[in-house]
Design a binder for these strands. Sequence first.
RNA 1: GCGCCCGUAGCUCAGCUGGAUAGAGCGGCAGCCUCCGAAGCUGUAGGUCAGAAGUUCGAAUCUUCUCGGGCGCACCA
Length: 682
Amino acid sequence: MYRTLQLQLQTTIEALLKERYQISLENLAMELPPRIELGEIALPLAFELAKRLKKAPRIIAQEIQAAVANAPGVARVEIAGAGYLNLKLDRPSMVKRMAADEHARVGGGGFRLVEHTSINPNKAAHVGHLRNAILGDSFARMLKRDEYKPGWETGVQNYIDNTGVQVADIVVAITELQGMSLDGVRAWMAALRSSGTRLDYACWDLYAQVSQWYQADAPRVAERRQIRLDTLHAIEAGGNEKAEIADLIATGVLRRHLETMERLGIEYDFLPRESEILHLHFWETARALMVQRGVLYLETAGKNKGCWVMRRAISAAAGVELSTDGPDEDAKIIIRSNGTVTYVGKDIAYHLWKFGLLGKDFGYAKFRDYPTHTCWISTVHGAGTGLAPGSEAGVHPAQGYGHADAIYNVIDSRQDDPQTQVKESLRALGYAEESDAYTHLNYAFVGLTARTAQELGYGLSEEDRARNFIEVSGRKGFGVKADDLIDRMIEAARKEVDARHPDLDEAERAAIARTIGVGALRYFLLRFTRNTVIAFDYQDALAFDGETGPYAQYAAVRAANIFRKAGVQESDALEAMAHLDPSQDLAPLLEGEDGTSVWEVWLTASRLSLVLEQAIAAAEPAILARYAFLLAQQFNNFYHRHHILTETDATRKTLLLSTAAVARRELVRVLGWLGIGVPSAM
RNA sequence: GCGCCCGUAGCUCAGCUGGAUAGAGCGGCAGCCUCCGAAGCUGUAGGUCAGAAGUUCGAAUCUUCUCGGGCGCACCA
């Protein structure tokens, strides 16, 4: 609602400036004044105009004051400081319009593809992977159509590198260290299942073992490295026992990852796999295009002689001139001298596909059913037809995939450089628009605090202890596994729930604990902005007081309790306010210190769509997380100050009830975008 | 060596495209449950925004440099 007023105000002011000063501004700054007594919208506009009109800001402010005061929803305008225009809103009309759920429409056209999780399917997911998945899932929820907003058409992909070195390592561990054959692997996996052992956990340990094994015997390091390479090539080629083992393991671990993520409410629409990118020859098609457009060329001299290379993105973007004498030694190698393609090359091909520029498509097969939709996986069968085997004729199983208008890749910022290379290669190929629509949603990695590392039983060196964080390492089997963390979060919540609600039945207490545990975890990983390195600490994550998910959930639960006790529906409370008899004067109830404390809840609630737009523009869910906390905090203040159920004045009671309802309504919405549910009780 | 990110209260972090007296949580101290659930609320102490120079009416925010920390710079993925 606040956003709606801002947009109207912007139109009014633009027209005014054009008419009076023949000026148009690039962007019109609007701020929230530092204190509510100053108003609800502040315009530093006069400062900006002062430069261009060569007049004192205060004079300019006076000149436009009256016209701004006529804008819809504005009660009056005051000039403060050296020339701020402070707008005071018409509080009663704002309250009524918000009670009717009037708000700006967030959304637009085009298909948006969000890719996240993308964990190597060779071992259990850890906290770092959770940060990735939770960021991506929250961002997708922010974009998607829902009851609040039209949003954008959005698809969620999880890229599966099922033929990479990490999977090869597990296959080496299984065949070389464990001495298993294909049948042995099948029997082993069946045994794990029947004993209730998680496959990804078993692989976690195997991966650590094989990583040690490569280095353990100095004279045999080269030999073992060769085994690793041969295994990788066998897996890439396919059609042999090692490839089959790799597929069994990778698929099994992938299913585990999806289970883990589903515990957090995270679902996917499509799982493109590297094996299909290989077997459907995506790269060969991309290579032809790159050579044809002169982006990729054979180096004939220097250290990269015999390789196919392309210009380094960093220098291209910076507009650095290439020296004409001699080869570009800084160039990025795309095809090695042995003819194999590097990771960046494959990624370029994959991204051409994402934008529908490759002229090829995957085959599709159903992989997993969620309550509301199906998750598809790539296959070579039916490739290019756009039809999954057995799927309804004419219906694209993963409609929209492979022709995105904008993409968001949630990837660790340690991959900033290769991502930039892919983005710039699209531009070099002539796809500037697609390159611009490519967002690397990067984030800093998650380490562990020394305290948590020690708690997990890892020995630390002196220098480790001196650092701010300890890096996780799959090779050392060192890290916090996702399912262990989720288990502990839920257990901790369960303890609290049991203590507070011994009366509730087992199933309900379990459900409440799940919602709280997951909410606490998601909030904990979302409240940091993306470029902040998180030193994960169990003690911090398990805190349920202060700026946490449970704090926000608790506010929503308290609000619900009011309606339960009052025997009133929230929707009726809002309806009553929206259609309040015009003879009832709300204004006095929203003025003064007491009234303002009620109004502040509405004001914060009214900023929902504005904050959502900011969070989307910055691709930063943390902005919403902080907002959710602020709204909860204001509701708690309101709750403490105003006793609703005992209120005797009918109009005032309507106001207080609808205040609780609006706070809860918007709180439930933001938390929903963060993937955080509100439990039935706390 | 080159590139990117960071340095804000005891600790962990916010601070929107430069704008009003730099904020929050935790921790500390002092309080609040005969009153919609205290996973809550109130009050209080605590900052030379790493340092220096510059741009500007105005800088935590922009530019340059210095110091300190992190991460990238493979014919790995």
